[in-house]
Nucleic acid binder design. Structure first.
Length: 363
DNA sequence: TACATACAC
DNA sequence: CATGGTGTATGTA
């Protein structure tokens, strides 16, 4: 609804945050203007040469396209909010969100009807929905629930990989195969994969009293998109056939692809690319206007050809540790900053311990 | 190498 | 009144 946008706009206008955001948007607009200028300078020959180059890349990607795996993306529905609703029945039928007055982590579906969303400040949430109940985060509880979810996932793929507390990827290809050997019935592999995922979701629900949605496809990129299709408490299966994948992607908004965010989707929109299918049609421009790295990921998004793993590759270890806090306006004095800095330093592991830790991590 | 930007959750 | 924190990847000076 347009009203929602108006309320947010009105609540934000004039604030520092708003001005900063506007300034950043102007920079993006400027970049897009320059991009379009460059675009207009291309000759048809240049574009068709670029298309040919993309076609070569496409052939390569098609060559290595792997349709042999069943990758599953599991995504818990409104996770933090669902945990709170489970534990506090009085919250079950009211619009509520988890977070604080300054930031909401997630909202339940009742609150979403009012436009209350994750990453929205609580005070704006309350403008959109005066009855909104905001409950503080309780990460210990969410971690505990996540542990239970992971117990279930591990039974379907011991090598599953979590992205965050509420979502993860599995490769159930082997599990499907063994299940096909053992049990009879003239069930296809596709049906078996879907049955297993339905079963897994039911087990998650039984163990946690929380619902999960899931996507099943040939690779992680597609599975993630699919898990969003029938949310909440649903699943979506995308057949592992090139034709089905291309048909599915043709009309899919580029913004749904993980990795295509606010800025890139604006740039693409300026090129009249809003659907994944259009990434292929306009591949010449993509080639001429974006970095090699982006070219590749956009082509992948158009083709649905992603490397098949689930992230859990050989030496995947955390690469950095950091901390960051925003000071309230009144406490932003040299003295308080200094004392904050002191506390960071004193809570940082001493060098020998840090080295040991680094050794541990690098293994 | 350092710093800035984009992105995800 | 008022808009987060952690981590990864990539681009640029």
């Amino acid at each position: 609804m347009i009203q929602i946008f108006q309320i947010i706009e009105e609540a934000s206008r004039g604030s520092k945050f708003y001005n900063h955001k506007k300034q950043r948007q102007e920079k993006i607009d400027e970049r897009i203007r320059r991009m379009l200028e460059l675009k207009d300078s291309f000759t048809p020959e240049q574009v068709s040469r670029a298309e040919a180059q993309m076609d070569a890349l496409t052939a390569q990607l098609e060559q290595s396209r792997d349709l042999s795996r069943f990758i599953v993306h599991v995504d818990m529905d409104a996770f933090y909010a669902a945990v709170e609703m489970r534990d506090r029945p009085e919250l079950r039928d009211v619009p509520m969100a988890v977070g604080s007055n300054s930031m909401l982590s997630t909202s339940n579906y009742a609150a979403r009807k009012f436009g209350v969303r994750a990453a929205m400040p609580g005070f704006i949430g309350r403008k959109l929905c005066p009855q909104l109940v905001i409950v503080p985060c309780d990460f210990d509880k969410y971690r505990a629930a996540s542990q239970l979810v992971q117990q279930v996932m591990a039974r379907y793929d011991p090598d599953f990989s979590m992205v965050s507390l509420d979502e993860g990827y599995l490769d159930i290809t082997d599990r499907v195969a063994t299940e096909m050997d053992g049990d009879t019935g003239d069930q296809s592999e596709d049906e078996m994969a879907q049955r297993l995922v339905r079963e897994m979701r039911a087990e998650i629900c039984r163990l946690t009293r929380l619902t999960a949605s899931a996507g099943i496809a040939a690779n992680g990129m597609l599975a993630k998109i699919c898990s969003d299709q029938n949310k909440p408490d649903g699943q979506f299966f995308l057949p592992r056939e090139r034709r089905a994948v291309l048909d599915f992607l043709r009309e899919l908004p580029v913004r749904k692809v993980s990795g295509i965010g606010n800025v890139l989707s604006q740039q693409l929109a300026a090129l009249e690319v809003t659907r994944c299918g259009e990434l292929l049609e306009r591949r010449g421009l993509v080639r001429l206007l974006f970095s090699e790295c982006i070219q590749l990921s956009l082509l992948r998004a158009g083709l649905g050809a992603d490397p098949p793993g689930v992230g859990r590759d050989e030496d995947s270890h955390q690469k950095s540790v950091s901390t960051e806090t925003t000071f309230a306006g009144h406490s932003r004095t040299p003295r308080s900053c200094r004392s904050y800095w002191e506390s960071c330093v004193s809570s940082c592991p001493k060098t020998s311990a840090a080295r040991a830790c680094a050794d541990g991590l690098s293994r």
